Amino acid sequence: MTAPPPPWRRTPSPRRRAAKQMLSQELIVKTALEILAAEGIDAVSMRRVAQQLETGPASLYAYVANKEELDELMLDAALSEVPCPEPDPERWTDQVKEQVRHQIRAMMAYPGIAKVAWRTPIPVTPNSLRQGEVMLQLLRAGGLDLKQAVFAGDALSTYAKAFAYEASGWTFGDYDPEEMSERGRQMAEYMRSLPTTTFPNLLQAGEYFTAETSQPRLEFALEAFVAGLAVMVKR
């Protein structure tokens, strides 16, 4: 038999709101990512996160310095999902390409986070640093010296951010479909009006710039870049 609570002990009402979670940097970033997933990157602000957590914006600044830091922390959370493989000198070219693909997928998993990555030239959060170190390890395992690995890693990171940024715009509706359709029609008409003898290659290139060719273009760029690095190593 279960004894009822004594009369002096207050019994919570079923309608009583649950106690708020203890504020922390982790909770603030988690809430920001939830807003981002539901409403997009432009909806994320310190005030909006504070509203979601039922507190004032000032209370967030004890954990996050400003919106720029919040953006970097969201990017860091996205990059936490990217694996960190042990370098294998026998398959370093495949590992480098795989790592870039993983980074792009991680950025595209969150609507707008690629925009954050693009406008954060040198992120120094834990997972950003870890990804930078992993890429350098993979490149050096292939035989590149530190300078070559740094330059190659920077170029690959820039390409990954640019690709994810552009692809996210289409995936998450940054571009109005009707507006882009009309722009595409106008561009096609404009290109057809150009002299065929002046732009013979450009006038035939349109078929290779479609949503269907997005992945093949990525794979071509990775293959060409990494193949060039491999030749550099052999020299």
Rank of each mutant, 00 (worst) to 15 (best):
L156I: 11
D76L: 02
P57M: 07
Y110V: 05
P87S: 13
Q52S: 13
E69Q: 04
Q103V: 15
L70A: 03
T125I: 07
V150G: 04
A50T: 01
R119Y: 11
E68A: 12
A77K: 12
M108P: 00
P111R: 04
I122L: 06
S24P: 06
D88S: 14
T158W: 08
E39A: 11
M135E: 03
A160S: 10
P123G: 07
L53R: 06
M74L: 10
Y63Q: 11
W92Q: 03
R130H: 09
S59L: 04
Q25D: 02
Y63A: 08
A141P: 06
P89D: 09
A152Q: 03
A149I: 09
T125G: 00
L36N: 02
Y110F: 14
E133Y: 13
T158K: 12
V116S: 01
V64E: 00
L138G: 03
G56L: 07
M74N: 03
V124R: 06
A37H: 05
G56E: 09
R91A: 14
S80V: 07
D76I: 01
L144M: 13
P123S: 12
L79N: 03
Y110I: 03
I122F: 05
F151V: 15
T120L: 07
E90A: 15
D76M: 01
E54I: 13
Y110N: 04
W92Y: 10
N66S: 07
G56M: 07
F151S: 12
